[in-house]
Design a protein around this nucleic acid. Structure first.
Length: 425
RNA sequence: GGAGAGGUAGCGAAGUCCGGCCGUAACGCGCUCGACUCGAAAUCGAGUUAUCCGCAAGGGUACGUGGGUUCGAAUCCCACCCUCUCCGCCA
């Protein structure tokens, strides 16, 4: 959510930011509502001031046994008027708030202006593509042949875009989760959290999934509960409506959770394999940061995600998302794209964002700066560290051998009973 | 699911029966500053809600949420939400 004062005073800047995002939000009619709101507010506040003053007078006169009938008569009509105006004001207030909740964040000045992923800026590469002296296979073919991925049965159990992991694949999923969490907690200074994976509406409003993106979520019937699309939601909302101490910043949290996405509007995309599922595992990192240092924190965060890929020996590149590709709540986002030889493509495996105070304002997360009584909004950052299923895809495709076997990366072997290779049956 | 208790500032909590002199909200804790001290503890003193409109002066709002009664509601009435305790059920 943007600061309404900022919106009023820096209208041109906001308009230009929205244009860069290719957003078609109508600010003009909103501003008219805002003017209306403020004039209503002034009128009703004046009347309430009068009412309060007169009420005190009534109390005083009654104590002296003076006649108050005239005052009571006057105030009856004032109160009626207040009730009418309060009703109008409430309606306008609701509209204002709902509108503010639909405006996306303003991109950071460093973010390249562009339309879609083709305009993203490549920042750096790490590692090299593996040299394979045979035509590489895609992960679903290898995974199925090796008996680890079972798509038909997942379809039977549930439907499309689900998978059953079996044997070594189930084991690798669990190994990856433990490996990632261990690195983040032992080497990167994160505190591990096991949050609920079902959250309420306020939490989703706080991080920006609602009200605009309800169709992307799974909602539970007969309640206002939703399955989380990412652990960013529970981790960031841990501090909703709280006031933190300045010395507790930055607060770094990590969590493994399953994530649930309806994937509405992605019907033709990635229908094969486990790249795009309705349910997937992810290790998430969240940082609640001091506003003066949040961009340093963003570099740390993306570095922590990169470290996982480096330890696994997977080639990747880092890109800065352009304005057209940027998510709703983010001011700046780095995507990490891992190389997939089977698909002959770089694919997103982590997304690391600084939301600045956008979520902080929505979720009302503040901190107490030393030597000041004024409470300030925190900056919030989140990043995958990493998407577990996609990491398995990357391992399968990058470490595949000519005979269809898959070598296990060194760092993962202690997590898999020392297994060094998955052999075809 | 049943019974009971509760929701007031950063935290705990008084106030609710009996509406106005109680929301810049008693009292306690915490926090900040100061005094004492070589320093600290203890003690003493001062300060400390948030938010909105307004250039300002000033004013408004908020006692879980939403309604109602009233000139006036933390306080009375109605509905709902949440938390805790006990009972039942349950991995």
């Amino acid at each position: 959510m943007l600061d309404i004062k900022f919106l009023r005073s820096q209208l041109d800047q906001v308009k230009s930011a929205l244009r860069k995002r290719h957003s078609t939000i109508d600010l003009e009619s909103f501003l008219k509502t805002d003017v209306q709101r403020r004039s209503l507010l002034q009128e009703v506040e004046e009347l309430k001031g009068l009412r309060n003053k007169t009420s005190a007078e009534v109390a005083q006169k009654k104590r002296n046994n003076d006649d108050v009938s005239e005052l009571l008569e006057q105030m009856a009509s004032v109160s009626k008027r207040i009730k009418v105006l309060d009703g109008e004001l409430k309606e306008v207030d609701t509209r204002t708030r709902e509108f503010l909740l639909t405006i996306p964040n303003i991109p950071h000045g460093d973010v390249p202006v562009g339309r879609d992923e083709n305009d993203n800026r490549i920042e750096r590469f790490w590692g090299k593509k593996p040299t394979l002296d045979f035509p590489p296979k895609e992960h679903w073919e290898l995974g199925t042949d090796l008996g680890g991925l079972d798509f038909p049965r997942a379809t039977k159990l549930t439907g499309s875009r689900f998978v059953v992991l079996k044997g070594w694949a189930a084991r690798m999923e669990r190994a990856l989760i433990n490996f990632m969490i261990d690195v983040h907690t032992h080497e990167h200074g994160y505190t591990e959290i096991m949050p609920p994976v079902i959250v309420n509406k306020d939490s989703l409003l706080g991080t920006g999934q609602l009200p605009k993106f309800a169709e992307d979520l799974f909602k539970l019937e007969n309640s206002d509960y939703y399955l989380i699309p990412t652990a960013e939601v529970p981790l960031t909302n841990l501090f909703r409506d709280e006031i933190l101490n300045e010395e507790d910043l930055p607060c770094a949290l990590t969590a493994f959770t399953p994530c649930f996405r309806s994937e509405a509007g992605s019907y033709g995309k990635d229908t094969k394999g486990i790249i795009r599922q309705h349910q997937f595992d992810k290790v998430e990192m969240v940082r609640i940061a001091h506003p003066d240092h949040s961009y340093e924190d963003l570099e740390l965060l993306v570095g922590h995600a990169e470290d996982i890929l480096q330890k696994l020996g997977l080639h990747y590149r880092v890109v800065t998302l352009c304005t057209g590709d940027l998510g709703f709540s983010a001011a700046k986002t780095y995507d990490i794209e891992v190389w997939l030889p089977g698909q002959n493509k770089y694919r997103e495996i982590s997304s690391c964002s600084n939301c600045e105070d956008f979520q902080g304002r929505r979720a009302n997360i503040r901190f107490n700066p030393k030597g000041s009584t004024k409470k300030l909004l925190v900056h919030t950052l989140n990043g995958s560290g990493l998407a577990v299923g996609r990491t398995m895809v990357a391992i399968i495709e990058n470490y595949q051998q000519k005979d269809g076997s898959v070598v296990i990366p060194d760092v993962l072997r202690p997590y898999m009973d020392g297994i060094d290779i998955i052999q075809p049956r």
